[in-house]
Design a binder for these strands. Structure first.
Lengths: 212, 212
DNA sequence: ACGCTATGTTCACAGTGTTTACATCGACAA
DNA sequence: TTGTCGATGTAAACACTGTGAACATAGCGT
């Protein structure tokens, strides 16, 4: 177990910096996580960050990955409550799909700062995104894919309906989260936002289930 | 007509700065429009910008408004082509709605830099968004509202379906544009993106028209 | 012709990300 | 135990940014 040296050498600065970034991002969003602020919060000199991160971008991205984990947790939590009382396979499948969307929106409304960070995860920033390797598919997106596959298995969706269904689903839910977080709906009554979000989720599910 | 003085006093620096910002934002997005870059491009000293804009934010917002105009133009253009060969009132109404969505996506894919700017328009940045005054409803959003109302009038949508329908529609289209622009779909083949975008539009329209 | 005001310039300041040279700790080997 | 060395943190500097204050110029109205 790493002793707390309390002088010069930090126990695990990498983790400490990510933690500080997470705390700063919670209020203030992505702009609040700067090299100087993070290192200041960790009680360390600015240049120390460069021993653990290539870049400012790299630091932000590490924090973003942590935020993404929290997003995934929020989604699985909401899936659990939605599928709690869903009797049949068919009901459970759509409840699960609904849970993904509502969990995503939940998180965006509850933690807008972290949500903003989590979005950076989907943008490698590099040159060629090309093909997404299975290993690096973001957990939240994976949960959506699995929920849609479950709908296919349960007979909720036909094969034709399942095809590419992840994009309309993700688009609607992510779009609403963005609108409610940074867009014209920002600052509105949380209850109203939750109701509108639920409406969006229901309607996109209906759209995906519609005849083709 | 303002003579080109070519020394010290610029003809219309306000417009020139917005133009320069537009040019810079086209490649480079919102980050490229900084006070120093814009003034440099306009051939003027950095502090000159502060005679015409309160703030860096204010400058960016002015450029964003210009970008938003271009977005609105792209939408009306696409509406025109979609409704060109739509015989009945009912077909014309859904064609118009489809045109709004496709135009939005068109613009995002064709001019990602400007699109990023245009989004800032919907975010006043100030404290209380509260109620949107009719006068300051962004033109693109207004086009959506009008298209939905036309669907109501044409009997495509019931009153219950029309209610709050702007949010699922905007969420889906905006969400897809964001995903295709900054998200995991960025850099993908334009033809594929256009097809996926069209699919998203069709499915959200189906979702809005579904039984309630 | 004389100001007056609008507009643009210069200089300075605080803050940022980042690099370079130096200091210190912890561990491993003779 | 002692010496050395790599890993880790510090200090100082650089280039850059947005922004404000003091100054300069141009053109308009009296």
């Amino acid at each position: 177990m790493p002793q707390i040296t309390s002088s010069y050498h930090h126990g695990d600065l990498h983790a400490a910096l990510v933690g500080a970034g997470l705390a700063l991002a919670r209020k203030g969003g992505v702009d609040a996580v700067g090299v100087r602020d993070v290192t200041r919060q960790a009680g360390v000199s600015p240049a120390a960050a460069y021993r653990h991160f290539e870049d400012h971008r790299a630091l932000v991205l590490a924090v973003a990955l942590a935020a993404q984990d929290h997003l995934a947790e929020a989604i699985v939590a909401r899936i659990a409550t939605e599928t709690a009382d869903a009797p049949g396979d068919r009901d459970a499948a759509v409840a699960r799909l609904r849970g993904v969307g509502l969990g995503y929106i939940d998180f965006a409304l509850a933690e807008p700062g972290w949500f903003e960070l989590a979005l950076l995860t989907f943008d490698p920033g590099g040159e060629a995104p090309s093909v997404m390797v299975a290993e690096q598919i973001p957990a939240p997106f994976l949960l959506l894919l699995q929920a849609l596959d479950a709908c296919l298995d349960a007979g909720i969706l036909t094969a034709a309906q399942r095809e590419h269904a992840e994009w309309p689903c993700w688009s609607a839910v992510h779009g609403f989260a963005d609108i409610a977080t940074r867009g014209p709906l920002r600052g509105q009554d949380p209850a109203v936002l939750a109701a509108l979000g639920a409406d969006v989720v229901e309607r996109i599910i209906a759209g995906v289930r519609a005849d083709r």
